[in-house]
Design a protein around this nucleic acid. Structure first.
Lengths: 212, 212
DNA sequence: TAGATTGTTAATCGATTAACAATC
DNA sequence: TAGATTGTTAATCGATTAACAATC
């Protein structure tokens, strides 16, 4: 052994969880179309994930299918939804009231997954006092006074990149347990917080690399 | 062998490319701070990726470091930038002129990575004829007439979910080779096209799963 | 020279695929 | 019963880590 760095080992099941959430969105779609039963080999065609892996992913969490038949669409949908935690309501605080936030708040993904935006904060006087979809925009300076981690489960951070780290620190201090941010930079994650990042430059890199 | 499905095997190096793009954004930052040299063990602390893997990732594409010293920050930045294809200019068409697009167009990620938005299309008369940042919004109905794949390298698709598949089909037909979309649904990808997806519900699932 | 850090190979670990008995 | 498809185990494949000689 050369090193002894302790690292909060990146949650083992993440790959499975990501795939489950692909299955879930397809099941949403199939259910809407009225499809009753689906087999792993049919999912393979839709998702581009081998039938073996589909069955293995599901078997990780239980026995949801019927041999010789397949999986019941509405039932499997419920099961996966529950595994991912979407059976319960999630109260979300939006940090940053710019264009991105108003896109999010109108997105169907939020309702579909039981996420509800309960508070919005921004530091700009252009926004403070106004409201989006009936939710008043509060002053970022009052975050510690106005945000109570007992009433909010996670944060969506849509502030300019230089402010992300500080925002996360403040949220961590208040006791918010999870956050998602979009800036193209790494952050230090406070203890006891789960922080995820969606970085469009990463996807663009994959795209340009492949097209090069 | 049970199956014989032919699948365009998901590009082998994707994992490395994603990490390179994390290194790149950190190098951007370090360069701005004036840091001249960085070692793989320092990158390990910043990225949460083992020094071994950092060295291996880089070695995949060349010899960029100096033994006993480390990596020259501006030089390594140039190298990675080139590997990912960001040394050349990329002409981008935006499909959909809604809130999301105007966020993208103002984002620093685009300039930083040599991406330039050259055309914008939308189907709504609320947008057609207006312009964003000096780029006129054209009528989606005229896509085939007005969009020339010889002048555009890739597409960013920010249209409502039900329109994504049709949009991709049209772009493929016109000869656009790459696209990125944000809807939470799978699509069929035309031959000779690379299509990537950023789905916020996938990230939210990882988050809610871990917080559950 | 001594210390540091790379590039690279060998060892390990984990994830995916193939295969098949169980069972509808 | 014959055909289909699951759940699960064994085999394979690929990705990560450890280790170290090379070299600044």
């Amino acid at each position: 052994m050369t090193r002894k760095i302790i690292r909060p080992k990146t949650n083992k099941k993440n790959l499975i969880i990501r795939r489950l959430s692909l299955y879930l969105r397809t099941l949403d779609h199939l259910k809407k179309k009225g499809v009753e039963v689906i087999s792993s080999s049919h999912l393979e065609k839709i998702e581009g994930i081998t039938q073996s892996l589909v069955r293995r992913d599901l078997a990780e969490f239980g026995t949801f299918g019927v041999r010789g038949v397949g999986y019941n669409v509405p039932l499997l949908r419920e099961h996966i939804s529950q595994i991912l935690g979407f059976d319960q309501n999630w109260r979300v605080v939006l940090i940053g009231a710019g264009g991105f936030s108003s896109v999010l708040i109108h997105s169907e993904s939020f309702q579909k997954r039981n996420l509800k935006i309960v508070q919005i904060f921004d530091k700009s006087s252009d926004y403070i006092g106004k409201s989006i979809e009936g939710i008043p925009i509060q002053d970022m300076a009052q975050l510690e006074q106005e945000l109570d981690s007992r009433h909010v489960d996670l944060a969506i951070i849509a502030v300019p990149p230089p402010e992300v780290q500080h925002t996360i620190n403040r949220l961590g201090h208040i006791g918010i347990r999870g956050a998602l941010y979009f800036a193209s930079r790494p952050v230090d994650v406070p203890e006891n917080m789960v922080v995820l990042n969606m970085d469009i430059t990463v996807e663009l890199a994959v795209l340009t690399y492949q097209l090069r």
